[in-house]
């Protein structure tokens, strides 16, 4: 959070420091005992971490009667997609996925627009009450919205926004930390650019759109990705704000609405696998971007 205000210490001054490793001919890593040990331990840990997922997938491929058999078996005796078929036929999950897409896109788009505008104003303009307002927003970072669910729900129900997409999405848009991150980034853009554009007669909106935004690709991607992942997986507020299953997102639907057939583990696991799939797929496709987005925004 305070990185910007502190003098970077040696390892972090890469651009100005001594020639980095890349300048030298790249050494081929020779397998050292330490490296081998690290690989073995790393893979072991990875297997432990993947095991629950493998177990879930294997369970989802079992016929229902096999799931509670004692003693337990890892592999299904008669693999079947029946559980998946049942989940898909029920149709709830598809609806929740659609809702998740709508809500997450809405939250991400609004967060970007609203926070970029505010960050620009704080970084590049002067207006009465600017410092005061910025301090207020920074203080807002400390506010844990999770602790405010009861008053917030009460207010939303007075406003008639319970069980609407807006009711789910809007409170999630209030992310003062994103304003903070963006402002810090905008501060690093030399003022000359913006002033040149201003001299050419461009208004603030124009400067923002054609000077600041094009130079802020990485931070916008980071904020966008981080916000999207957060919104996609958010449970508490959407859980509080939606009672109508037709409006629930994936985490809320899976966590509260049940199949009316008794507890059926194969189906639950199939639903879990299907519910997890979209974000995991996005991650596999854009691994580098997601990793960077999450670390950049996470490191505030």
């Amino acid at each position: 959070m305070s990185a910007a205000t502190r003098t970077p210490r040696p390892p972090r001054t890469a651009p100005t420091g001594p020639p980095p490793a890349a300048a030298r001919p790249r050494r081929l890593p020779r397998p050292t005992p330490g490296g081998v040990l690290a690989a073995v331990l790393g893979v072991f840990l990875a297997v432990v971490w993947l095991m629950p997922l493998v177990w879930a997938v294997l369970t989802s491929l079992k016929p229902e009667a096999e799931t509670t058999a004692v003693p337990l078996r890892w592999l299904p005796l008669e693999p079947t997609f029946a559980a998946y078929q049942a989940v898909i036929e029920r149709g709830d999950l598809q609806r929740w996925l659609l809702n998740s897409v709508v809500v997450s896109v809405l939250v991400t788009a609004l967060t970007l627009v609203v926070c970029v505008l505010a960050a620009y104003a704080f970084s590049k303009t002067e207006f009465p009450g600017r410092a005061w307002l910025f301090a207020l927003f920074v203080a807002g970072i400390l506010v844990p919205p999770q602790a405010l669910i009861v008053p917030l729900f009460d207010q939303m129900s007075v406003l008639g926004m319970v069980d609407t997409y807006w009711g789910v999405a809007l409170p999630q848009v209030v992310a003062p930390v994103m304003v903070f991150i963006l402002k810090r980034f905008f501060d690093a853009i030399p003022r000359d650019y913006e002033e040149a554009a201003r001299l050419d007669g461009a208004g603030h909106l124009r400067v923002l759109w054609s000077v600041v935004v094009p130079m802020s690709g990485p931070v916008l991607a980071a904020v966008g990705i981080f916000t999207f992942v957060q919104a996609w997986n958010n449970f508490l507020w959407p859980f509080v704000a939606t009672a109508d299953p037709a409006l629930m997102t994936v985490p809320v639907g899976l966590g509260t609405v049940q199949g009316s057939y008794g507890i059926q583990y194969a189906q639950e696991m199939a639903a879990a696998v299907l519910g997890a799939l979209p974000l995991v797929a996005v991650f596999l496709l854009f691994q580098r971007h997601v990793v960077r987005g999450v670390t950049d925004a996470g490191l505030k």
Binding site: N233, P251, L254, E268
Partner: peptide, 28 residues
Amino acid sequence: RAAAGLGWFLRLSYFAPFLLPVAVVALI
């Protein structure tokens, strides 16, 4: 520390659960 070729696999294995919705985690 591990060989570069393993990097993506380890990153994926360790990070993948973070991407799961909480309800999925709880169900599993």
